[in-house]
Amino acid sequence: MTGMQLFKALSQVEDKYLSESAPKKRTVFRNKWVFLAASLSLVVLAGFTAKLISGWEIIPPPSQENGDALLRWTTGPYPLSEKAQALLESHLSDHETWENIATSPEELEALMGIHLLTVQGDTSLLDWDCAAERKEEGGILLWGHYWQQGWQQLPGKDDEREVQWTIAVSSVLDTVGGTKEQPWPDVPEGYLSIRQTVHLDALNTEAEMFFYASDFPVSNADMELRHNVINCFLVYDEIAYSIHIRAALGAEIDAGEAFERAADVLSQLR
């Protein structure tokens, strides 16, 4: 059989399916990003309202020039183990490492400032427009991540997503010294996210990742809320995002549980 035969046979597709493929009418939420942006606005509003009511302490957003501020902000209100603290500090102070990742001074600045990542040698993996767009909308706290060519190169066909997940975990384990049982030992989210992208690319996987949080005021409660809302977003996409669920919520919470928590938070917001 040839592709042409297949192409021709598709002429006999049932009408009901072809009716579905008609251009869709635009709605207020034209796509998931618009929905996410709308959700984010809600979260921002909730955060400010909460601050007004309770006077929670607001931790300032990171300064692009100040590594210390970035460190405080990245770790947020969560206590870190000594090991995690050391890992993070060494990473943040090691500009050479950042420079190895960044492909330009501008990228280096972005890496330090908003954790916008790219991989050396391939700026096409970085979506600056998308990041900027989110910034203009205010209150950025999205993570984006998708797979392209690497997906197709993986062995096995029973459940490619599972294969991808396993490999991704293994590659990070080498870096942070975790185990399969506890793949994210005491490592803060930002750190893990960065390492993941770099190592996924080393696996010849074309990966893209952009932004989380920029000028979003973060209080303890916001931080908790933020994690859960992130997971709401993740429900929209596929397994690659669950890596971030784990990174955000910790190894003891699996994706299913994270989704449940996300649903709870969403219902509270509504």
Partner: peptide
């Protein structure tokens, strides 16, 4: 598009009989 669809099939020449086409269409649906 046809090149991509070639990934789904053997590429071998097979008779394009009406029966084969009907079965294929059914499978696609």
């Amino acid at each position: 598009v046809i090149e991509e669809l070639n990934e789904c099939v053997s590429g071998g020449i097979e008779p394009e009989g009406a029966l084969q086409e009907k079965e294929l269409a059914e499978a696609l649906n």
